[in-house]
Amino acid sequence: MVLKTTTCRFSGLRIYPGRGILFVRTDGQQYLFINRKTKSLFGQRKRPAKIAWTTVYRKQHKKDQEAQIARKKRRATTRTQARSIAGTSLEVINKRRAEKPEVRKASREAALREVKERLKSSKQEKAALRSADAKRGGGKAAKSVPGARAPGAKSGTRR
């Protein structure tokens, strides 16, 4: 859930719904304070730049610099970079990256077709063998048939 917050005019802290004192000056200027403390300080004409815990003071005196640097570092490390991996050189990777999707698709389809043809030919060979076994006769051949068939069928569906 996202809460709509406003900022305190004096301290710069976030004001969540249900908090805050809105003070409207005679000239129409609106001041929103987080609590009575800030309202009181404003009434005393204190300047937020001279009070150490306000965001204005912390910004002026560069108190939150460490946090900012840490954030920058984290951002830098997350950036991805192309480099050689497991025997594939950087040039090859870059080449593959630069290829258009159409080219990649075409090469992919060609490879698939080749695999399918190979499978078909191997199946035919197996079928031929089986028929030869059947001619010889015997229960042994019938038993061996489903075992021989199963792996081939499985690989076919996977593709």
Binding site: P17, G18, R19, F23, V24, T26
Partner: peptide, 19 residues
Amino acid sequence: TETKKEVQRRDGSVVKFHK
């Protein structure tokens, strides 16, 4: 329409005028 005494609203916020 405007009072120096603050008005407490149902949502917890407060409105206060200078006159």
